[in-house]
Design a protein around this nucleic acid. Structure first.
Lengths: 343, 343
DNA sequence: CGCAGGGCGGAAAGTGCTTTCCCAACCATT
DNA sequence: AATGGTTGGGAAAGCACTTTCCGCCCTGCG
């Protein structure tokens, strides 16, 4: 069953040339090979069905075409959009993408990074912010430094207080702008589905939103914060909790669209209407969620582009000096899920 | 910057043992090593920060931990759900997942497969059905046979008339069951957003739906078919076309949920209501789309599980004799987007 | 006509690991 | 005490490539 693949030696013998010549013809080199021999080699390779052994090549060249992409959850549309961007850039450059799914577990993240390091991966893109938990950040930092010392390049998506190239969405600014726009609509009492208390982007978005409210001339009442999982169900739960706790709220801000989706479901299940009884806004502008009804007001992040940018930072032809931070614009998109408050 | 990684020889020297012993301690072997030496090696490795070179290991063992996952579009929730399943199984087994995005291009698919072959990948999962175009199927078949002859294992998701293990969703049965249920609701004139005319699963679902209608005692009028892209926008376009062409339709079946989403948008944009004026049903039951309003009637496919099953077929510990076909159940889920026809 | 230099082919030395094979040492039998 | 079997360490032969270095031949120039 498992037939041996022909090797380069065999091709060379078949073509009656040296190993060196065969290598130069088939796998590229800056040295030219005469027409006659070149042709013989190509023919021999085709006849034998030769295909280079990538491991051997990587070893001999001491350079591998592998790059890594680490995401928390590939089924989450946020990450899969980013993955699409990263993968496009990688494939354009003939790189091989290794996908790692961390499940938001610090240990898995470290072990995946170490696997990538064992493969002498060229670069790695880490998507999704990590928690503020410092022990982990430190271990991650160590592992990343090791990776970079071995010549690997790293880019992160989402701020991480890590010493690497980063593509940061304007979490804070976006949330601030959103807050202003919602306040302009007339809302005064806000609820915030703040997500996990230790997740950097959730924290930033919450902070930005609070800032946006605080920066107004009129003093608004303190918003109600509920923490919960960064998922659809987390949004659902948090919303139930929020509604049980305080019913004066007229506008709910969920720190991401997926949570906002859960929120809308929870609100409906309570017999309330969006936006008539309660406005809802999210963050991210996930493409798949653009057809919700009522359509979700949110802050648009160019997810695929962010993936591409991170990829270029990490895979770019010439290494970038220092650590670059690319900030992506975040644009408020008000749709049907937000309206002036009732009454 | 790019510091050389310590090699196993260096570790062995540092621990004053032979290369063989170091290898046995650090990278596993069925031979035991005495406590004393074992300890010396471990200490030396930690001190030097040794990390095995995966390429060298793969070369020496002539076995690589790499498996491939080929999808058409990773941003599509259908594929990202499958990817989550595949990736979970792979990581459980310590395999490294290489993600390839084909963009539905035959050539990319072949070249990705060949890259995987060059890496001597253990196995590959091909997700998403290909077109019925025979030339490509043939070339793909050749490449896959080559892959299998070199000891690689293959599993497909979605029927492909290819000689490999396959996880097939009950496209035809599911669509047939859906058709019956919709007809029972009282619908008589159906429109079908049939997707690309040459895409196997689209064709199967359309065929199943037609069968379901034809199998009834009462003779229903011929459904209206519109072909178009397998995407949200494809669904939107096709629906506009359909509505322009025939306005007697009371129920629209889109061959996947993403198209159904576009359909609902198009219907709304025409000033019609779902399901009051027109019922809509999809296929797949994409998790992210479960919160649409009105909630979408569809046929549920256990996507993550399908990914896991395919992965087990492909990565399973003992090779499977013959080619196994696992059929997954497809369950009709009627929600709010379908109702008895108006009048 | 002599010689420098460019072009091109090949021998061979890596690249970092696994694994076979050999051997020494040690234990338990007869 | 001789024998046989087991255990664990090491030397060295792969694994499939790349690339350096050497040398040949041919060309062109003085």
């Amino acid at each position: 069953m498992a037939r041996r693949q022909p090797t380069l030696v065999e091709v060379a013998q078949h073509a009656r040339v040296s190993l060196a010549t065969a290598s130069r013809v088939l796998n590229g080199s800056n040295r030219r090979v005469g027409e006659e021999l070149r042709h013989r080699v190509v023919v021999a390779a085709t006849e034998l069905g030769y295909l280079v052994n990538a491991s051997a090549q990587a070893l001999a060249r001491s350079a591998s075409p592998v790059v890594g992409l680490l995401v928390h959850d590939i089924a989450d549309p946020y990450f899969s959009s980013i993955a699409a961007g990263v993968s496009r850039v990688a494939e354009d450059r003939g790189l091989v993408v290794v996908l790692g799914v961390t499940g938001r577990e610090a240990d898995r993240e470290l072990s995946l990074l170490s696997t990538l390091r064992a493969h002498r991966a060229r670069a790695v893109v880490l998507a999704g912010s990590r928690t503020t938990e410092s022990l982990h950040t430190e271990r991650l930092s160590t592992e990343m430094v090791a990776f970079m010392e071995q010549g690997g390049r790293v880019a992160c998506i989402s701020q991480d207080r890590l010493p690497v190239h980063t593509v940061v969405p304007a979490n804070q600014d976006g949330a601030r702008a959103l807050a202003s726009r919602l306040a302009e609509l007339g809302h005064r009492r806000f609820g915030i589905l703040a997500g996990p208390a230790d997740l950097v982007s959730a924290v930033d978005r919450t902070a930005g939103f609070l800032e946006g409210l605080a920066s107004r001339d009129d003093a608004l009442p303190e918003p109600v914060l509920v923490h919960g999982a960064f998922t659809r169900d987390g949004g659902y739960q948090s919303t139930r909790e929020m509604l049980a706790r305080d019913s004066d709220i007229t506008c709910l801000f969920a720190v991401n669209d997926v949570m906002a989706t859960g929120a809308m479901a929870a609100i409906r299940d309570q017999g309330l209407r969006v936006p008539a009884d309660l406005s809802v806004a999210g963050f991210d502008d996930i493409p798949t969620l653009r057809d919700l009804v009522p359509s979700l007001s949110t802050v648009r992040l160019p997810l695929e582009q962010m993936g591409e940018q991170a990829a270029r930072l990490a895979f770019g032809d010439q290494p970038i000096r220092g650590t670059r931070t690319v900030r992506t614009r975040a644009e408020v998109v008000l749709r049907q899920s937000t309206a002036p408050p009732p009454r």
